[in-house]
Protein backbone atom coordinates (compact mmCIF):
# COMPACT_ATOMS: atom_id res chain seq x y z
CA UNK A 1 0.00 0.00 0.00
CA UNK A 2 2.62 2.36 1.04
CA UNK A 3 4.91 1.47 -1.75
CA UNK A 4 2.80 3.32 -4.15
CA UNK A 5 4.61 5.64 -6.38
CA UNK A 6 4.11 9.12 -5.15
CA UNK A 7 3.49 11.36 -8.02
CA UNK A 8 4.68 14.82 -8.64
CA UNK A 9 2.08 17.38 -7.80
CA UNK A 10 1.18 18.23 -11.32
CA UNK A 11 -1.99 19.92 -10.35
CA UNK A 12 -0.01 22.51 -8.52
CA UNK A 13 0.83 24.09 -11.80
CA UNK A 14 -2.84 24.38 -12.58
CA UNK A 15 -3.39 26.83 -9.82
CA UNK A 16 -3.35 30.46 -10.71
CA UNK A 17 0.06 31.92 -10.15
CA UNK A 18 -1.14 34.04 -7.25
CA UNK A 19 -2.37 30.93 -5.53
CA UNK A 20 0.84 29.13 -6.33
CA UNK A 21 2.88 31.83 -4.74
CA UNK A 22 0.86 31.78 -1.61
CA UNK A 23 1.00 28.04 -1.43
CA UNK A 24 4.74 27.95 -1.88
CA UNK A 25 5.05 30.39 0.90
CA UNK A 26 2.93 28.29 3.15
CA UNK A 27 4.71 25.11 2.27
CA UNK A 28 8.05 26.59 2.96
CA UNK A 29 6.75 27.68 6.31
CA UNK A 30 5.80 24.09 6.94
CA UNK A 31 9.25 23.01 5.98
CA UNK A 32 10.71 25.37 8.44
CA UNK A 33 8.69 23.62 11.05
CA UNK A 34 10.26 20.46 9.76
CA UNK A 35 7.04 19.12 8.42
CA UNK A 36 7.73 17.29 5.21
CA UNK A 37 4.66 15.16 5.02
CA UNK A 38 1.15 16.20 5.57
CA UNK A 39 -1.61 13.66 5.75
CA UNK A 40 -5.06 15.05 5.54
CA UNK A 41 -8.12 13.00 6.28
CA UNK A 42 -11.38 14.17 4.80
CA UNK A 43 -14.56 13.04 6.42
CA UNK A 44 -18.18 13.97 6.43
CA UNK A 45 -21.62 12.99 5.31
CA UNK A 46 -22.24 11.76 1.84
CA UNK A 47 -22.85 14.29 -0.84
CA UNK A 48 -21.45 17.28 0.95
CA UNK A 49 -18.50 17.64 -1.37
CA UNK A 50 -15.64 15.77 0.19
CA UNK A 51 -14.30 14.43 -3.03
CA UNK A 52 -14.74 17.71 -4.77
CA UNK A 53 -12.80 19.40 -2.04
CA UNK A 54 -10.00 16.91 -2.45
CA UNK A 55 -9.97 17.58 -6.13
CA UNK A 56 -9.87 21.29 -5.57
CA UNK A 57 -7.08 21.00 -3.09
CA UNK A 58 -4.95 18.86 -5.32
CA UNK A 59 -5.85 20.82 -8.37
CA UNK A 60 -6.52 17.70 -10.37
CA UNK A 61 -9.50 15.52 -10.87
CA UNK A 62 -8.11 12.69 -8.87
CA UNK A 63 -11.30 11.44 -7.36
CA UNK A 64 -14.37 10.91 -9.44
CA UNK A 65 -17.29 12.94 -8.39
CA UNK A 66 -20.88 12.22 -9.08
CA UNK A 67 -23.62 14.37 -7.81
CA UNK A 68 -26.23 11.74 -7.52
CA UNK A 69 -24.56 8.68 -6.34
CA UNK A 70 -21.67 8.02 -4.15
CA UNK A 71 -18.60 7.05 -6.00
CA UNK A 72 -16.22 6.53 -3.20
CA UNK A 73 -17.11 3.31 -1.54
CA UNK A 74 -13.85 2.99 0.23
CA UNK A 75 -11.18 5.36 1.32
CA UNK A 76 -8.80 6.60 -1.29
CA UNK A 77 -5.46 8.17 -0.61
CA UNK A 78 -4.02 10.65 -3.01
CA UNK A 79 -0.37 11.49 -2.59
CA UNK A 80 1.42 14.28 -4.30
CA UNK A 81 4.92 15.51 -3.81
CA UNK A 82 6.29 18.89 -4.53
CA UNK A 83 9.82 19.91 -3.86
CA UNK A 84 10.38 17.32 -1.18
CA UNK A 85 7.09 17.99 0.46
CA UNK A 86 4.51 15.24 0.35
CA UNK A 87 0.86 15.86 0.60
CA UNK A 88 -1.40 12.91 1.30
CA UNK A 89 -5.10 13.39 1.17
CA UNK A 90 -7.40 10.60 2.16
CA UNK A 91 -10.86 10.81 0.78
CA UNK A 92 -13.43 8.70 2.53
CA UNK A 93 -16.87 7.42 1.79
CA UNK A 94 -19.80 9.24 3.28
CA UNK A 95 -20.52 8.34 6.84
CA UNK A 96 -24.24 8.14 6.56
CA UNK A 97 -26.30 5.40 5.17
CA UNK A 98 -30.04 5.19 5.17
CA UNK A 99 -30.37 7.67 7.92
CA UNK A 100 -27.84 6.10 10.22
CA UNK A 101 -24.18 6.49 10.75
CA UNK A 102 -22.54 3.84 8.70
CA UNK A 103 -20.25 2.01 11.04
CA UNK A 104 -19.30 -0.17 8.21
CA UNK A 105 -17.86 2.76 6.36
CA UNK A 106 -16.14 3.85 9.50
CA UNK A 107 -14.64 0.46 9.91
CA UNK A 108 -13.37 0.59 6.39
CA UNK A 109 -11.80 3.94 7.02
CA UNK A 110 -10.18 2.77 10.19
CA UNK A 111 -8.75 -0.25 8.49
CA UNK A 112 -7.43 1.90 5.78
CA UNK A 113 -5.81 4.32 8.13
CA UNK A 114 -4.01 1.67 10.06
CA UNK A 115 -0.42 2.67 10.69
CA UNK A 116 -0.88 6.05 9.21
CA UNK A 117 -0.55 9.36 10.87
CA UNK A 118 -3.27 11.90 10.48
CA UNK A 119 -2.02 15.40 10.58
CA UNK A 120 -5.19 17.15 9.77
CA UNK A 121 -8.81 16.16 9.68
CA UNK A 122 -11.12 18.03 7.38
CA UNK A 123 -14.64 17.65 8.58
CA UNK A 124 -16.78 18.61 5.64
CA UNK A 125 -20.31 19.85 5.63
CA UNK A 126 -22.33 22.19 3.57
CA UNK A 127 -22.60 25.83 4.23
CA UNK A 128 -25.92 26.08 2.52
CA UNK A 129 -27.72 23.60 4.67
CA UNK A 130 -29.64 25.37 7.34
CA UNK A 131 -30.12 22.89 10.03
CA UNK A 132 -27.97 20.74 12.17
CA UNK A 133 -29.60 17.62 13.31
CA UNK A 134 -29.03 14.64 15.41
CA UNK A 135 -27.36 12.81 12.64
CA UNK A 136 -24.52 15.28 12.60
CA UNK A 137 -24.06 14.70 16.25
CA UNK A 138 -23.99 10.99 15.68
CA UNK A 139 -21.33 11.38 13.07
CA UNK A 140 -19.16 13.46 15.31
CA UNK A 141 -19.62 10.93 18.02
CA UNK A 142 -18.65 8.14 15.73
CA UNK A 143 -15.52 9.93 14.60
CA UNK A 144 -14.59 10.74 18.14
CA UNK A 145 -15.19 7.19 19.14
CA UNK A 146 -12.97 5.93 16.41
CA UNK A 147 -10.03 8.27 16.59
CA UNK A 148 -10.25 9.76 19.99
CA UNK A 149 -11.20 13.18 21.12
CA UNK A 150 -7.83 14.55 20.22
CA UNK A 151 -8.56 14.34 16.59
CA UNK A 152 -10.62 17.47 16.91
CA UNK A 153 -7.52 19.32 17.90
CA UNK A 154 -6.20 18.56 14.49
CA UNK A 155 -9.30 19.30 12.58
CA UNK A 156 -10.79 21.89 10.34
CA UNK A 157 -14.40 22.50 9.65
CA UNK A 158 -14.80 22.78 5.92
CA UNK A 159 -18.01 24.25 4.66
CA UNK A 160 -18.63 23.64 1.01
CA UNK A 161 -21.06 25.27 -1.35
CA UNK A 162 -19.91 28.52 0.06
CA UNK A 163 -21.02 30.53 -2.88
CA UNK A 164 -24.51 31.21 -1.88
CA UNK A 165 -26.95 33.91 -1.33
CA UNK A 166 -27.91 33.74 2.29
CA UNK A 167 -31.57 33.48 3.12
CA UNK A 168 -33.56 35.86 5.25
CA UNK A 169 -31.61 38.78 3.90
CA UNK A 170 -28.79 37.86 6.18
CA UNK A 171 -25.36 39.18 5.58
CA UNK A 172 -23.07 36.59 4.09
CA UNK A 173 -20.60 36.74 6.92
CA UNK A 174 -23.30 36.62 9.50
CA UNK A 175 -24.82 33.68 7.81
CA UNK A 176 -21.60 31.75 7.49
CA UNK A 177 -20.59 32.46 11.03
CA UNK A 178 -23.97 31.34 12.27
CA UNK A 179 -23.81 28.20 10.28
CA UNK A 180 -20.30 27.39 11.41
CA UNK A 181 -21.19 28.17 14.98
CA UNK A 182 -24.03 25.75 14.85
CA UNK A 183 -21.78 23.08 13.47
CA UNK A 184 -19.00 23.76 15.91
CA UNK A 185 -21.43 23.48 18.71
CA UNK A 186 -22.50 20.15 17.39
CA UNK A 187 -18.92 19.04 17.22
CA UNK A 188 -18.33 20.12 20.75
CA UNK A 189 -21.37 18.29 22.00
CA UNK A 190 -20.80 15.28 19.83
CA UNK A 191 -17.21 14.96 20.93
CA UNK A 192 -18.17 15.68 24.54
CA UNK A 193 -15.52 18.29 24.89
CA UNK A 194 -15.44 20.65 27.73
CA UNK A 195 -16.06 24.19 26.79
CA UNK A 196 -12.70 25.28 28.02
CA UNK A 197 -10.92 22.60 26.11
CA UNK A 198 -12.87 23.50 23.04
CA UNK A 199 -11.96 27.10 23.29
CA UNK A 200 -8.30 26.33 23.68
CA UNK A 201 -8.25 24.60 20.40
CA UNK A 202 -10.60 26.48 18.25
CA UNK A 203 -11.51 24.54 15.20
CA UNK A 204 -10.84 26.78 12.22
CA UNK A 205 -13.60 27.09 9.73
CA UNK A 206 -12.86 27.12 6.06
CA UNK A 207 -15.33 28.00 3.40
CA UNK A 208 -15.01 26.24 0.12
CA UNK A 209 -16.67 26.46 -3.22
CA UNK A 210 -15.78 23.62 -5.49
CA UNK A 211 -18.17 24.30 -8.27
CA UNK A 212 -16.83 25.11 -11.65
CA UNK A 213 -18.88 28.24 -11.66
CA UNK A 214 -17.23 29.71 -8.66
CA UNK A 215 -16.50 33.32 -9.23
CA UNK A 216 -12.90 34.25 -9.75
CA UNK A 217 -10.95 37.34 -9.05
CA UNK A 218 -8.63 39.14 -11.36
CA UNK A 219 -5.88 36.67 -10.54
CA UNK A 220 -8.12 33.89 -11.68
CA UNK A 221 -8.37 32.60 -8.17
CA UNK A 222 -11.61 31.13 -7.03
CA UNK A 223 -13.09 33.42 -4.48
CA UNK A 224 -15.92 33.40 -2.05
CA UNK A 225 -18.68 35.92 -2.06
CA UNK A 226 -16.74 37.84 0.54
CA UNK A 227 -13.81 38.18 -1.79
CA UNK A 228 -11.38 35.73 -0.23
CA UNK A 229 -9.52 33.35 -2.42
CA UNK A 230 -10.38 30.21 -0.62
CA UNK A 231 -7.74 27.74 -1.68
CA UNK A 232 -4.86 29.64 -0.14
CA UNK A 233 -6.82 30.35 2.98
CA UNK A 234 -7.73 26.73 3.29
CA UNK A 235 -4.13 25.67 2.90
CA UNK A 236 -3.15 28.26 5.41
CA UNK A 237 -5.64 26.96 7.88
CA UNK A 238 -4.35 23.48 7.25
CA UNK A 239 -0.79 24.48 7.88
CA UNK A 240 -1.83 26.27 11.02
CA UNK A 241 -3.50 23.21 12.33
CA UNK A 242 -0.62 21.03 11.26
CA UNK A 243 1.77 23.14 13.22
CA UNK A 244 -0.26 23.73 16.31
CA UNK A 245 0.95 22.23 19.46
CA UNK A 246 -1.27 19.19 19.49
CA UNK A 247 0.06 15.87 18.46
CA UNK A 248 -0.79 14.28 15.21
CA UNK A 249 -3.03 11.30 15.50
CA UNK A 250 -1.24 8.07 14.90
CA UNK A 251 -3.63 5.41 13.97
CA UNK A 252 -2.40 2.14 15.32
CA UNK A 253 -3.95 -1.12 16.16
CA UNK A 254 -4.66 -0.03 19.62
CA UNK A 255 -6.51 3.04 18.63
CA UNK A 256 -8.66 1.11 16.27
CA UNK A 257 -9.36 -1.86 18.43
CA UNK A 258 -9.43 0.04 21.61
CA UNK A 259 -12.05 2.34 20.46
CA UNK A 260 -15.58 1.81 21.46
CA UNK A 261 -16.89 0.28 24.53
CA UNK A 262 -15.27 -3.09 24.12
CA UNK A 263 -12.38 -2.11 26.29
CA UNK A 264 -14.41 -1.00 29.20
CA UNK A 265 -14.77 -3.44 31.98
CA UNK A 266 -12.74 -6.14 30.41
CA UNK A 267 -11.04 -6.57 33.71
CA UNK A 268 -14.23 -7.57 35.32
CA UNK A 269 -14.80 -10.53 33.13
CA UNK A 270 -12.71 -13.02 35.16
CA UNK A 271 -14.07 -11.65 38.38
CA UNK A 272 -17.64 -12.06 37.31
CA UNK A 273 -16.90 -15.48 35.96
CA UNK A 274 -15.43 -16.43 39.28
CA UNK A 275 -18.45 -15.13 41.09
CA UNK A 276 -20.72 -17.02 38.83
CA UNK A 277 -18.78 -20.16 39.47
CA UNK A 278 -19.08 -19.66 43.17
CA UNK A 279 -22.79 -19.07 42.97
CA UNK A 280 -23.30 -22.14 40.88
CA UNK A 281 -21.27 -24.19 43.26
CA UNK A 282 -23.26 -22.90 46.13
CA UNK A 283 -26.53 -23.72 44.50
CA UNK A 284 -25.35 -27.14 43.60
CA UNK A 285 -24.37 -27.78 47.12
CA UNK A 286 -27.70 -26.58 48.36
CA UNK A 287 -29.50 -28.87 45.97
CA UNK A 288 -27.43 -31.81 46.93
CA UNK A 289 -28.03 -31.33 50.57
CA UNK A 290 -31.69 -30.93 49.86
CA UNK A 291 -31.80 -34.20 47.99
CA UNK A 292 -29.95 -35.88 50.75
CA UNK A 293 -32.46 -34.68 53.20
CA UNK A 294 -35.25 -35.90 50.98
CA UNK A 295 -33.77 -39.28 50.70
CA UNK A 296 -33.38 -39.54 54.38
CA UNK A 297 -36.95 -38.50 54.85
CA UNK A 298 -38.15 -40.84 52.16
CA UNK A 299 -36.42 -43.74 53.69
CA UNK A 300 -38.13 -43.18 56.88
CA UNK A 301 -41.81 -43.18 56.09
Amino acid sequence: MGSLLIREWAGFQQFPSATQNKLIELLSKLKQENVNTLTILVMGKGGVGKSSTVNSLIGERVVTVNSFQSEALRPVMVSRTKGGFTLNIIDTPGLVEAGYVSYQALQLIKGFLLNKTIDVLLYVDRLDAYRVDDLDKQIIKAITGSFGRDIWHRSLLVLTHAQLCPPDELNYDVYSSKRSEALLKTIRIGARMRKQDFQDFTIPVVLVENSGRCTKNENDEKILPNGDAWIPSMVKAITDVATNRSRAIVVDKKLIDGSGSDEKGKLWIPVILGLQWLVVKWIERAIKSDIKRDIIKGNRP
Binding site: F68, A98, A129
Partner: peptide, 13 residues
Protein backbone atom coordinates in the same frame (compact mmCIF):
# COMPACT_ATOMS: atom_id res chain seq x y z
CA UNK B 1 -33.20 20.57 -5.12
CA UNK B 2 -29.60 21.23 -4.29
CA UNK B 3 -29.11 18.80 -1.52
CA UNK B 4 -27.46 15.86 -3.00
CA UNK B 5 -28.89 13.40 -0.67
CA UNK B 6 -27.81 9.97 -1.44
CA UNK B 7 -27.20 6.68 0.16
CA UNK B 8 -30.89 6.59 0.75
CA UNK B 9 -30.55 9.02 3.55
CA UNK B 10 -34.16 9.92 3.56
CA UNK B 11 -35.43 6.45 3.60
CA UNK B 12 -36.21 6.30 7.30
CA UNK B 13 -38.04 9.55 7.02
Amino acid sequence: LDSQTRDLNDLPL
